[in-house]
Amino acid sequence: MTMKKKNTILIWIIALLAAGVSIYGIFSNQPINVGQSVPTIHGDLVTLYGKGLYHNESLSMAAQVRAQDMVTLFLGVPFLLSSLYLSNKDSIKGKFLLTGVLGYFLYTYATYCFVAMYNNFFLLFTLLMGLSFFAFVINLSSLNAIQLNQYFSKMTARKYVSCSIILFGFAIGLMWLGRLFPALSGGVPEGLEHYTTLPIQALDLGIVVPAMIISGFSLLKEKKLGYLLAPVMIIKGITLLLAVDAMAISMLISGAEVSPAELIVFPLFTGVFCFNLYLMMKGVNTGKQSEAKQLSQ
């Protein structure tokens, strides 16, 4: 069996599992502990969602994860399979799209494993996280083996794209630090609720933000690492930003508190990153496909 076939099987498993988990998360609304409030270790009371798979989540978190499930089902899975189709046609653009959307699945199910309260789908979340990790590494490695500088020889907006990626990385970092710094004196970080820590902020500050900044500066200096990471981070950024936009709308509808940044800044960055993806894909030299084809065999 060729590497292409193995990769195709792996991606289809991820797509089918993610679709099934998302459908159940969206439509499971059976009452379990509706209206129940639980005390936190800080002495506050948090009202639980009380329904379906996410019955032990707070109202705010339940609105977010259900919105995430909708984005995964209606955008993430179709994007994953269409990217796989293009990648299997030996399209370098398809390979970038596939690697980027796999980054979304990896991040999404890592957060489900470490953020969400334990539920009956924990092992499925863990399986999806593991499969997405290995698929992401495999596809990123295949891109790393290609002479990417030659593919982006036609790119004309490199400086703008580089600077916007760097700016987004700093913006995310400052946003989370602005939420965390006030609690350093002994207070409770905003959004902690009845959870024990803040894994999303840890993942973003420890991995996503540095990766954004490194990829931006590397692209600015025309390094191979920049051409490798920048498209992947842009695609991953778009999918995650769309999820955040959906979360903000869902929280607003459910009556949860939503910050102005979530309602204004994130949709703005979504548009910017979609434009950046257009610029990068426009600058790809599609005439050089033979090298990618050889590596996919």
Rank of each mutant, 00 (worst) to 15 (best):
M3D: 02
K4Q: 14
K4L: 15
N7C: 02
T8Q: 09
I9G: 00
L10C: 07
I11Q: 10
W12F: 02
I13C: 11
A15K: 05
A18K: 11
G20N: 06
V21P: 04
S22N: 02
S22V: 10
I26W: 00
F27M: 01
N33K: 03
G35I: 08
S37H: 04
V38N: 13
P39I: 07
T47R: 07
L48V: 07
Y49P: 00
Y49L: 01
G50E: 03
L53V: 15
E57T: 00
M61R: 10
A63F: 14
Q64W: 00
Q68C: 11
D69N: 10
M70H: 03
L73D: 14
L73G: 06
F79Y: 13
L80Q: 07
S82T: 15
K89S: 09
K89W: 01
G94D: 12
K95C: 05
T99K: 04
L102N: 13
Y104V: 14
L106T: 04
A110L: 10
Y112Q: 12
F114C: 08
F114N: 14
V115G: 03
M117F: 03
Y118F: 06
Y118H: 15
F121H: 15
F122A: 13
F125I: 01
L127A: 11
L127V: 06
L127E: 01
L128Y: 05
L128R: 07
L128Q: 02
L128V: 08
G130M: 12
A135K: 01
A135R: 03
F136A: 07
S141N: 11
S141P: 00
S142P: 00
Q147R: 11
N149G: 06
Q150S: 14
Y151I: 00
R158S: 15
K159P: 00
Y160L: 15
Y160G: 05
V161K: 06
S162L: 06
G169K: 03
M175C: 11
W176L: 03
L177F: 11
R179C: 00
F181S: 08
F181A: 11
F181H: 08
P182D: 08
E190M: 04
L192W: 10
E193K: 05
H194K: 07
Y195I: 06
Y195E: 09
T196C: 09
T196Q: 15
T196K: 15
T196W: 09
P199A: 09
I200C: 11
I200K: 04
D204M: 02
L205T: 03
V209N: 01
A211R: 03
I213T: 06
F217M: 01
Y227K: 08
L228Q: 14
L228N: 08
L229K: 02
P231Q: 13
I235Q: 04
I235A: 02
L240D: 13
L241I: 07
A243S: 13
V244M: 15
A248S: 12
I249G: 04
I249L: 15
S250G: 09
S250E: 05
I253C: 10
I253M: 10
S254I: 05
E257N: 04
V258P: 11
S259Q: 14
P260D: 13
L263A: 12
F266Y: 11
L268N: 05
F269R: 08
V272I: 14
N276G: 12
L277Y: 02
L277E: 13
L277P: 07
Y278A: 15
Y278Q: 06
M281R: 02
T286W: 05
G287D: 07
A292K: 06
K293Y: 02
Q294N: 14
